[in-house]
Amino acid sequence: MSVNLTLVLVAASLLGCGVYLVLERSLSRVLVGIVMIGNGVSLSFMVAGGPAGRAPIVSKGGDTTGLTDPLPQAMVLTAIVITLATTAFVLAMAYRSWQLNGHDDVQDDIEDDTIRRLALRDVTSEAYDATTSDYPGDDSSGDPGQGPDDDPLAADAAGIEGRTT
């Protein structure tokens, strides 16, 4: 199968630029990246369909040699429609995100952060138990105001996961 090099190069550069943009934080840039990737993929379907030929319209008993393969084009049409719908949806989502947060950046996982801080707290409380007897008044064991104090419940609660099993 002979391949149209121009199509391949254009598809590759569209995909490359698209991937670069998808790695951005801002949703609108990601969206542009997605659109570029979508176009690049559509072009690669043109490559997959083989060399260009006559329009694939056949009358009854007509000659079918030299026709373009119509199947990849049908697939590309479907893919284009889907990309359109996706674009609309992501745009709406980016707008909503901007409404809510004043920016449309892709955000971090909040719960992950909570769990990480809980884990830190766990470590701190153990360190506190280990160090209080030796270094009273050492305040490096936690955030001021929130760290464990004399209340035995605090250390207990911080180790809640271990306690309840």
Partner: peptide, 20 residues
């Protein structure tokens, strides 16, 4: 949405490769 978009794109690419 973004993760699934990327996986759909990957699916399309594999379809193109398979068809070719």
């Amino acid at each position: 949405v973004l993760v699934n978009l990327l996986s759909s794109t990957l699916f399309l690419i594999s379809l193109a490769v398979t068809y070719a």
